[in-house]
Design a protein around this nucleic acid. Structure first.
Lengths: 225, 225
DNA sequence: AATACATTCAAACAGTATGTTGAATGACAT
DNA sequence: ATGTCATTCAACATACTGTTTGAATGTATT
């Protein structure tokens, strides 16, 4: 299979890149790495995997060219080797949304139940941010927020949201976002806030896409900025 | 693995799309289907597979949402379900080129040996075509040419090229293309023609990309147009 | 109805992937 | 040096993939 001609050889390599994307756990790891580089242990914990298992998935993706790693003291930090990896994942999503019945069912059955409204586009949000018309709410865990977030975003991780409703304005529109298009955090946040009478919509996707689009970002832990 | 939450379920589906791309033979089938829809038998023959084997690869890709099929009398014709599938394959190529050492080696060792010149961009070729400055040479098999090709292109399948050199002009620049970026036909053609003193360059990719870019195309068997 | 043909399905095989366990490596701290 | 911690490796059981073979299906042709 691997080597009748040079084209076959190349295609076998390209297929390996695709194979490296071909597992739910690995796509989840890529979503996490799209936020910021991370250690094996941190990834394992967030993705719900054993450390050894996460390590194997990471090695496989590194071999395929999806990731690179560097050592930082005792730990090894992995990150996406190329922004084009995000385009690939977005492509999988697109093909799935449009051509796989089960995907459409889940989107209709779970996601649209939490938030049926049209999401806000990046462009529109960027514009309204400039005009100071909206409150932007980042519902990711604090460390992901610290690694990079939308300008002037308020960070309330989803788990704390019901306790901190008073930190949010009732009059202004709120735009919630998290890791990406199917990150459940923003959907759950939208459902919760709407139930409590807030005016809320979701950003169409997440922080990685915002950054990849070249829009301004901010870093650090502070709430104010 | 498949269903702790809705996100995991979606990711498992998206992973299936990636898995369907994860085999050299399947990428080759996709390259053929990017030219035009085709029967199982035709695909099997061109990809060098048994009919039953091709059928299984096709079924898998159809399930994943990459392909659709329709019956036409005795045969079943497959085609790409979505232009986004081409974007996905292009994404694999891009990640491979930039991040997999072996890919770079093969490109340097085989492809650049045949044609080290910068390829002509679609834009540039479209412009020069309008001005009537170039001869466009399509080296794909006749039936693929007939299904769609660049305007005013001359079709000389690679196998016939050495016998039909006199059909090509020595004075004008020739731009050769075939199925896509790593279709060997155009590289071999460029090497052969250059050896015989023609001025020849390659188009940066192939017919499917030209069509996907919305540039004008022509159909039918005639040589003149 | 009988035949021919294209495709799919089912069964079988070898080969490859996944996830677990426990041991090995490599880097830092004492 | 010794111990500790994060990561990787090796070995294993289990499940899935790719391919071949031959039979079954479904569609045209006679």
């Amino acid at each position: 299979m691997s080597s009748q001609g040079p084209k076959q050889l190349l295609y076998a390599r390209f297929a390996e890149v695709a194979k490296a994307l071909g597992h739910g756990h690995r796509l989840e790891i890529l979503e996490l790495l799209a936020q910021t580089e991370r250690s094996v242990e941190a990834l394992a914990e967030r993705a719900g995997l054993s450390v050894a298992n996460a390590s194997q998935h990471l090695r496989l993706m590194r071999r395929a060219g999806l990731l690179t790693s560097r050592r930082d003291g005792k730990r090894v930090l992995y990150r996406l080797s190329d922004p084009a990896v995000l385009d690939l994942v977005a492509g999988l999503r697109r093909v799935g949304e449009r051509n796989v019945a089960e995907v459409r069912d889940v989107v209709a059955g779970y996601f649209q139940k939490r938030d049926g409204l049209e999401p806000v586009s990046r462009r529109e949000l960027a514009q309204r941010l400039k005009e100071g018309l909206v409150t932007v709410l980042d519902v990711r865990p604090a460390d992901e927020f610290a690694a990079g977030h939308l300008p002037r975003a308020v960070n309330i991780p989803l788990r704390e949201l019901s306790r901190r409703l008073r930190d949010l304005p009732k009059s202004r529109e709120i735009v919630a976002y998290c890791r990406g298009p199917y990150c459940v955090l923003a959907f759950e946040a939208a459902a919760l806030l709407r139930k409590h009478g807030f005016k809320v919509r979701r950003l169409e996707d997440g922080y990685p896409e915002w950054r990849a689009a070249g829009l301004p970002i901010a870093q650090g832990e502070a709430a104010g900025d």
